[in-house]
Every structure is written in C-alpha cells, then in structure tokens.
Design a protein around this nucleic acid. Sequence first.
DNA 1: TGATTTGACTCAGAAAACTAGCT
DNA 2: CAGCTAGTTTTCTGAGTCAAATC
Length: 706
Amino acid sequence: MHQQDPDEIPLSELLGNSGESVPRVVSVARQGGFGAPSIQVAKKSSSAALSEDELPLALLIGTERKKECSRRKGKVEPCRKAPKRKCERMKAEKHRKAKKLQATSTKHRAEDESIKWCSLEHNGVLFPPEYEPHGRPLLYDGCEIALPPEAEEVATFYASKLGTVYLEKETFRKNFFDDFRKTLPVDLRKRIVKLEHCDFSRIREYLDELKERKQSMPPSKRKELREAEAQRVAHYTVAIVDGRKEKVANYRVEPPGLFLGRGDHPLMGRVKRRIFPEDVTLNLGRDAPIPPCPFKGHDWGSIVHNQRVTWLACWRDPISDEYKYVWLSASSHFKAMSDQEKFEKAQQLSKHITKIRNEYTKGLESADRHTQQRSVALYLIDKLALRVGNEKGEDEADTVGCCSLRVEHITLQEPNIVQLDFLGKDSMRYFNRVRVEALVFHRLREFLKGKRVSDNVFDELKVEELNDYLKSLMPGLSAKVFRTYNASYTLDKLLHSVKTPGPDIHSRLLFYNEANKDVAVLCNHQRSLPKTHSLMLERLRDKLEESRAYLEALKMARGKAQASPDSRAQVTRWRRPVVEIPEDCSLAERKRIREEAEKRPKEKQVVNMGLASITRGIAQTQEKIRRLEADLKTRDSLATVSLSTSKINYLDPRITVAWCKRHEVPIERIFPRALQEKFMWSMGVSEDFRFPISNVVSNDPSGAST
DNA sequence: TGATTTGACTCAGAAAACTAGCT
DNA sequence: CAGCTAGTTTTCTGAGTCAAATC
C-alpha cells in the first residue's frame, strides 16, 4: 500500500484520538448467503483506501467471490489525497517485485501456501485506553498555553522523553515538532514556531506525580490492581486453533506515541498515531463468531479467513506502513513446528556443509567476478556468521549486512587480516579482525580497488541471487541457516569438549554460560552496559580489597594466638562506618545519604578473637575472595554480551537438554519458564544427542575472532 | 509484498545481599 | 561471637514490547 507523505495528512487523521475527528468505516457489508463464505469488504477510511490490486494478499487468496462483491459494490476508492511521488514510486516498485516473485519463487510459495489451520477462534485485539486529558499547560515563552486534547497528548509524549538521549538528537526534535505543530489549531500554530521556546515541564510534573503515586502504592493494592487487570485482559489472551487452546503473544494493539527507532533513524520523533478498529483486519475461521468491536460507532476494518497464514490480526504500522501482526505465543503449535523445522534445516546443512565449503572455495578461483563475489560473501556468512544484508530504503537507518557492506567498512591488513567495522541490525556495531584465506584476502583487495568509500564491496551480487544459489545447493537453504547451524554446532562442540564441567551445579552453570557466551560473541549479540555497571565493579573491587586485607590481618593474628597462652589475639579490620538513616525520609533522600556515606573514610575496628574463630575466619574469607574474584571476572566479560538472544533463536534446545541430562543440571536453571514451554518439544531428547557434526575440520567459526 | 523470525531495551518483580536486633 | 530472623536495599531476571531483520 502507499505511504502518505506526512505533509498531506490532514491533522485530524494524523492524531485521530478523540472520537470526532476520526475517519471511520461507515458500514460494513456482510456478504454471504448460501454456503458462501462470509466475507466482509469494508469501506476504508481514506488513509486506508485500497485499490483492488493493492489489497493484501490475504484478502485475495481463494476468494473469487470476494472480487466479485467488491466489484459489484464498486467500492474501490481512489486515494482521496493522492500522495504524489512516494505513492507512485512505491507502486512501480511493487509491480516490479510482484513480477519477480511470480517468476522466481513458485516453489517457495507452494510450500508457504499450505493450509495452516482448519478452525480458528479468538476474541480480537485489545486497544489501549482512550486518552484522558490532564489540562496541564505548555509554556511558550513563559506563557501558559492550554492545549486541545490532541495536541496535549502529543506534547505529553514528548514530556515523557525529557531527560533522555532522544532529545539530544536534532532529527528527533525536528520530526516531533513538525508533527506536533500539525496537531495545533491554526492560531496556536502561528504562535508556536520554535521548539526551543516550548517548556514541557508542567506536563512533566504531572507525569512525575503519576509515577510517584503509582510507586507509593502499597503492595497489596498493587497486587489487587494487577489481578483486576489480568482478569480484564484474560479474554484476549487465548485463541482456539483446531480445537486447541493456545496463548496469544501480542494481543495488545500498539499504543500511540513517538516513534523511537534504533540508531540514526530518519523518522525518529514522528508521531505514531493511534490504531482504530477500522485499521485492523481479523483472521478467523469461517464458522467462528466475529468478536464484537470494542468501540461504539466503530467497526473492524475487515474480516478474513486466510488459512494459509498463522496470524490472528493485522494492521499497518503508521510509521513504516508495514504490516504488524498478532501472533500466537512461542509455545504454540505453529511456532513450535517452525522452530523444529528450523533446526531440522540447520542439521540438514551439516550434511551439505563440506560440499558447500568446497564449492565456494572453488568459486574463489573463478575468473568470473560475480562468482568470486558470491563465494567471498558466502565465506564471510559462513565463517563470521554475518547476516545476509538486504538493501534498505531511505526512510530507514543506515545499517548493513554482508551483501550491503561498503568499502568504508573493510580495512585490509597484509598479509591476510580483514578488519570489519560496521553498524549491523539495530545499529549494533560489528567490529572484528580476522585472519582469512589468502585467496579471500586477495579477492577482497580486488573488490575494493578503484572504488570510493561509499561504494558497495559486492557490487555485482544481489541478495536474491545469493539465496537462489543457496537453494540450488540444498533445498530451503538461505543465508540465515548458516547462523543457526554455526551457533548450534559451536555450542554442541563446546559442551562436549569437557567430560566433567565442574564439581557442583554452580560451576557447571558457569561452564555452560561460557559456551553460550562464545556463541553470543560469534553472533555479535550485544547489550548495553547497565547504567551502574562501573560503579558495581568498583564496589566489588573494594570488597575484594577489604577481604584481602582482612585475610592478612587474620593470618597475622593466627600466629599471635598460637603463641599466646590464652590462644587469643587482636584482629584489626577496616570498615566504613555505619550510617544512620532517618526513618521518615523519602527514597531519593535515603539514596543520597547512602552515597554520601560511601565516600567517608574507613574506620578501624579491633576485635579480640579466639584461635578457633580465627581459623574459621580465614577459611571463610578465602572462600569469599575466590567468589569475588570469579564474580568480577565473569561480570566483566559478560557485561556487554547478551546470552538470551542465541538461547531463544539459534541454539537447538536439544543440545542443552541433553547436556543437562548428562550432568544432572535441572533444565530450569538454564531455560526459564517461558523457554521451557517454547522448547517443550525438545525435552524428551536422549542424553547422547549430538548436533550433527560435519567431517570438515577447517573453518571453525568459534575460532574466527582474533 | 506479506509473513515470519530475530533483536535490544524497559521495567516490574524476584532473588540475593546486607543489616540490625536478638539469642 | 556466631547464627538466626526479619526487614530493607540492591541487583538480576525475564516477560513484554516493538523495531528491524530475512526471505
């Protein structure tokens, strides 16, 4: 579908929260009749108008009849406000792509278009509550300005971001202010022209008050509210698929707000408008009752019965204009099946991997530039677990993957070291220096020759071509299978590298996490440093220091005690003085006092101890020191690594389950409840399970980094 | 294009760590 | 002085969220 130029959107539509200004479906025609599927073709609001060939596939599949009825009604509305350039560009693009799709991927589609369910029942989606105006003014040049509800809501979105890094970004502020002004009535729009003159602090105060009120709520009251909320939403949390009761993952419609985005996103700060029932398409069984629309005077955008997909509802994201879907949870049958297929495919790859590696190694020698590029790209994908790197649009952050690498991202260092430095998915930095095959190095040097920094390294390679090629090597193979394969292969190998991974559960878990960490590093799964990380490390070091000093003092005292007639001796210990915190001060105040206290000098304490106590103290302190040292080490090395992503997406759970069985580690120590449910299908695996290992010895991805 | 998977970040609540008071 | 308990604070975990990839 087209994306409207924001300037073309009437402001009432941009926001559309309060009832009056929303364009809505006037009536919903229910066709049907004798044995016919009941199909609704809703009249769309202008912003959602679809010409027939723009209808989502979902609306067209297997429904000759539907075409008929929409034609009969002649209700295909043209775009009321034809959004120019963008609309046309996107249409042309779509035609091109649609043709291509038809030509190239019939097989893929045939597989994709299998029937996924026979009966499907659910209760629709849960909308966020209506906006409730608070009446706090905006200050403009110091003057109070009462905003109408739509504008107030947007101003409040902004106020909630005060003090975050978003506001330091020019793009964010500009996008916000442009959209904000569109919500203002004409007179105010004339007056409010500079963001720098806007003061949102009164609104912020209101938000802080709300927060404070919420936080000071007694736990009992909190619990009560939580339970009431659970009851309110219970209706939406389950669906019935082919008679099975399944959990719905994201039954909540995304609330309006400011679009944040990741990295340097050109649309950050834009207002993400509210979604209404008219925007939403529900997918239901033909016999399933249609859930009543929760808003009076509104109705669902459309109802479809598409058995070839697994989503329950969809709408278009107002920012990207892409579809958002409501899915079943990860523990559902659908998801479990595709998860199993995914790991099945990865195991398949291990049977072909030798052949494939030989293939692309041979390809490096080819005289054909295209084959060379394809081979080098595949080498990097396989060896470094890079993502394939599709093309990106102008309205997205500038991030890259393998095929979209530019000259500026690669530095070559004789004789054979390649340095990669680029922003990947989610604008996460990928930085790695690796030793590569001589020929790969040579080819890369050729690819870079004579190009500008902003040129593509793989200028003669398209992602589709690479994937088509992979399909020819093994059915269903695509670039991401290499990530799954290499991640699982690595974990399996590491977990089998040691017979007895530790005397107790604690050390075995440490061992597992270490292996998990290697995979996470391979996949470049990062997390941001927790705010207090350095402070925490400092405290740990301080404690370590203190314990070491205490140990020395104890040892010295032991000698003295042994020599003394009464077997006693003085032990000196340095500690920070205990602070008194007044009972009736606020949380913030307490925190401040605590922080103050940490700066105070340590005080000397002298205790008279018996020999037995001293000896015990020594053992305890030594143990404590060991613990602190280990802690310090793991925390530091795990600080910026995220283990969960690979656990959830890349590691065949059977590897973990088998390891747990072999080493008597309860599975819940590694898989939290949700993951246990997601991976239920893997729990029965035998303890001898191996993730198939290829007979190729070279190219071990876990050893790729230098 | 549309469907589906992957990914980092947030925040609430749980768990761990710490402290004071008592025996 | 050690050990226990209860209360408090700090840290960690993980479920939820929604953006951003793939194919």
